[in-house]
């Protein structure tokens, strides 16, 4: 474990806590894409299939359980909780996210570390996570003004994978046989997708103005 990876995991956890706070405090999921939340639930379920078979550390197991439980809880809130469900804007959240699932799985069938069930689902989860934010970014562009908590949620979610890239560079330089191309390339693509969001987020922070993504 290095400082970049720890910072990445904590930033990821923070993004989830900010989203939970937004939904709990405002009893609303306006500006939040249910489809992105569903994709993240699939990402965690597919990536942590080895949760009970492959013990790495207490930290690792604890975080996996937190990520799976929180992503399922958020999807449940948006789909089932009467007050939150009412604020979900399905006319804005129209990204065909099942195409992302299909494309990621297809790619994982061809590009993986080993042709085993766990490895294919792991690669699938890596590719899917890279594009999982797309429905959310599209929704932010459509919904015009973005409330602070949702903006912070997306910012921390994008920043965590950027910190992971620093972690991979650090590990590549310090560990003799460290190579993880699938996660690295996918992580760079994932972080790049946030580039324009980061730009507008920085502008809004600098001008102390409302975050607004151009349509």
């Amino acid at each position: 474990m290095n400082i970049f990876r720890l910072a990445g995991d904590m930033t990821h956890l923070l993004s989830i806590l900010v989203l939970l706070l937004k939904i709990y405090a405002t009893k609303s999921c306006s500006g939040v894409s249910r489809k992105t939340q569903e994709l993240y639930a699939i990402v965690f379920l597919a990536r942590y299939l080895d949760l009970f078979t492959d013990f790495i550390s207490v930290y690792n197991t604890f975080m996996k359980i937190v990520f799976i439980a929180s992503s399922l809880a958020i999807v449940w809130c948006i789909r089932v909780h009467p007050m939150v469900k009412r604020s979900y804007d399905k006319d804005l959240d129209t990204f065909r996210h099942y195409l992302l699932v299909a494309a990621s799985f297809l790619l994982a069938l061809f590009l993986h570390e080993k042709f085993t069930f766990l490895e294919i689902f792991w690669a699938f989860s890596i590719y899917l996570e890279a594009v999982a934010i797309l429905p959310q970014l599209v929704l932010l562009q459509r919904s015009g003004n973005v409330d602070n908590l949702t903006g912070q949620y997306v910012f921390f979610l994008g920043a965590y994978r950027g910190l992971y890239i620093l972690n991979w560079i650090y590990r590549y330089l310090t560990e003799p046989r460290f190579t993880r191309w699938i996660a690295c390339v996918s992580g760079v693509v994932q972080t790049a997708l946030y580039a324009d969001f980061f730009y507008y987020y920085f502008i809004s922070w600098k001008n102390n103005s409302k975050l607004k993504l151009p349509a």
Binding site: R5, D9, H12, D50, D54, I56, N60, M63, K64, F67, E113, W122, Y164, N167, E175, R177, R180, A183
Partner: peptide, 10 residues
């Protein structure tokens, strides 16, 4: 050291 489990990251 043994080949570190390649899935030690979240």
């Amino acid at each position: 050291c043994s080949q570190e489990s390649s899935k030690d990251e979240l």
